[in-house]
Nucleic acid binder design. Structure first.
Length: 395
DNA sequence: TCTGGGGTCCTAGGACCC
DNA sequence: TCTGGGGTCCTAGGACCC
């Protein structure tokens, strides 16, 4: 979906179309006052001049989405709000409204599923679709179906999307970036050299800033550079798994299936404080936040019907270093008090002398509620370990 | 001048088991 | 006195993605 969060906001506030608009994380809602002032009026009637501006924002947070007019100023996702304010002070700033984005997420996925049932969910604004066997899916190399799908999504949601069509997920993802917004692009295996090799390695989904930098230091900038290196050399430099994957990716090879169902591995809640807090000086405030996070994770688990055996915490210090601690229990839990107890144990094992910026609580090793007995491994091991060596075989 | 929140997967060492 | 070869699980950190 194109500039998804911002585009959803523009459905509510069409008067902001064409203006630089950013959606940014903040616990306070900059448009609260606005909505109160205009209570009872249609949202689309609120004058543009009254919307909160980026330059008036003080506080922490990053941009989650910027509209195309805002991107003209050099603003982009994950940029700090204070830095963005310097680049484009007159941009309008709206807070994230996940409930609303999830609603539109469900809407567009329903449309996709109705046309092509093999869909992999890749988050709120992205999916992979295997339409190999969809009737008419091969017409015009896939363009016919992609066009129908764009129209159906626009009809149902008022939103645009960009679609990449290719023989595998790796190439389809790259293709989807070629023609944004509201574009379709088709990449065939024989287009690799012309369309993919000239691109920067960073365009490959799976090569991030660290790998890009390491590749650059080795004289590898484009995907063509990468493809030219022997597989064995890449394995030497990057390890067995990642090196081989880099080679395959550069040659457009990817045999991952479209996965339509999956179980969650972990659930977590974390929060960045408005100011850095100290374990001693701000003990009570930290304790309140800590307990609230445990309650939120517990509520998430219970709502979705899961419990978990591995309880963990995450700290981010003022200098941005991260520490994590976790512990695995014998039996899965999902209640706030038990999570709070285990997380408290974890907290005792981590240094707390420096100021903290963030605190998080995580529950992993999830099992579906009611299937707790399906994970007896550690218990079984313990039982065997204590068994009488004369009745239990040694080998 | 700073840098969110929610995830997945991988690595590597140590404990423990057979 | 010196000594194996698997395997799984747990823990901490890190890269990466949306």
């Amino acid at each position: 979906m194109d500039a998804f969060y911002a585009s959803v906001e523009l459905l509510r506030y069409p008067q902001l179309k064409g203006l630089p608009l950013v959606i940014g994380g903040s616990r306070r809602r900059p448009d609260d006052a606005l909505l109160q002032r205009h209570a009872g009026q249609p949202l689309s009637a609120i004058p543009v001049e009254e919307f909160p501006l980026l330059k008036d924002y003080t506080g922490r947070g990053v941009i989650t989405t910027a509209t195309y007019p805002a991107r003209q100023f050099g603003i982009g996702s994950a940029m700090g709000l204070m830095k963005a304010a310097r680049l484009c002070p007159q941009a309008i700033l709206l807070p994230v409204d996940f409930a609303e984005y999830r609603r539109f997420s469900r809407l567009f996925k329903e449309v996709v599923l109705s046309m092509a049932p093999l869909m992999e969910d890749r988050g709120v604004d992205e999916v992979y679709i295997d339409f190999t066997d969809v009737p008419g899916g091969q017409r015009q190399g896939g363009r016919a179906l992609a066009t129908l799908m764009q129209r159906a999504i626009a009809e149902a949601t008022g939103l645009t999307c960009s679609i990449g069509v290719a023989p595998n997920k790796l190439l389809a993802k790259m293709a989807s970036e070629f023609n944004k917004p509201n574009g379709i692009s088709i990449v065939q295996a024989e287009d690799l050299e012309k369309l993919v090799w000239p691109l920067a390695c960073r365009k490959i989904n799976g090569i991030g800033p660290k790998s890009e930098e390491k590749l650059r230091a080795l004289g590898i900038v484009t995907i063509a550079d990468l493809a030219a290196r022997p597989r064995s050399w890449l394995v030497q430099q990057f390890g067995k798994a990642y090196g081989a994957w880099l080679h395959d990716a550069a040659w457009g090879r990817d045999d991952r299936p479209v996965v339509t169902e999956s179980e969650p591995v972990s659930m977590s809640r974390e929060t960045t404080f408005e100011r850095d807090l100290h374990a001693q000086g701000d003990r009570e405030e930290l304790a309140r936040i800590f307990t609230a996070l445990c309650e939120q994770v517990a509520a998430d688990l219970q709502r979705k019907g899961y419990s978990g055996r591995t309880i963990g915490i995450k700290l981010r210090y003022a200098d941005f270093r991260i520490a994590t601690r976790d512990m695995t229990l014998e039996l899965p839990i999902a209640d706030a008090a038990s999570i709070r107890r285990a997380a408290g144990q974890c907290l005792k094992r981590v240094p707390l002398t420096q100021r903290l910026r963030l605190l998080g609580v995580r529950v992993g090793a999830l099992v579906k509620a009611g299937e707790e007995a399906a994970s007896p491994a550690p218990l079984a091991r313990r039982a065997r370990a204590g068994a009488d060596p004369f009745t239990a075989p040694l080998f």
